[in-house]
Design a protein around this nucleic acid. Structure first.
Lengths: 106, 106
DNA sequence: ACGAATCGTAAGCAATGGCTTACGGTAAGT
DNA sequence: ACTTACCGTAAGCCATTGCTTACGATTCGT
């Protein structure tokens, strides 16, 4: 859907670190910020960007808020890249064939 | 080469427009810049970023320089996203099962 | 050999983005 | 009820980035 926001969100290295920490499952903000060099509010801001991009889901659990990776958001990006790869490979193969024919002509 | 540079390069909307123009095959700089709102040097700068990220190949052809999408660069990004999707989906399924068991207990 | 075309690069400027500190708001513990 | 813990938001600062104009280098056409 909005793969554009998703790719912009994942372009930031810090946000990829956050995503990596959520690979094994949902975590509250404090646990995510734990051991990171930036402040907790900074992490919150990054989480906001990732959620807005559709890459994370938020589930309030009492005192805390659990963030988890949204598979659908990742799927959107995959669809874009798959389409891009199909076209890129087709164009590449076509160019290679073109070149082979050229070499044959001489 | 690095998927990190590749995703950062594709995060820019203007650079995605450039990539889209190369989907059907290689083009010289002038043809790419044709019809775009930004100046030709600006396009050159974007092409530089995309090449450095391993997303484009450059082949000098006499007076001009032909830019084409590098399938390998796109493949690197796909690998990262595939890995991310695998983990995200596994965590999602695990969480769903966890929740189902909870509902059973009461 | 000379002029035109194609393209990359440098310098400078305006805009965007990420970080920190400070603060407010809600839920849990006692 | 009061304190503590957890978290989001606002304001401000600094670095990065994307754009333009100006210039230099290389190649094609005549």
């Amino acid at each position: 859907m909005d793969y554009e926001d998703a790719i912009a969100a994942l372009a930031d290295p810090t946000r990829r670190v956050i995503i990596d920490r959520l690979r094994s499952g949902a975590l509250p903000v404090g646990a995510i910020a734990q051991g990171m060099t930036i402040s907790r509010p900074a992490v919150s801001q990054h989480l906001r960007v990732l959620s807005d991009a559709g890459l994370l889901t938020v589930t309030p659990a009492g005192n805390r808020r659990l963030y988890a990776i949204a598979p659908e958001g990742v799927a959107g990006l995959r669809a874009y890249l798959d389409s891009l790869w199909d076209d890129a490979f087709a164009a590449f193969a076509r160019a290679a064939e073109e070149k082979a024919k050229e070499n044959n002509d001489e």
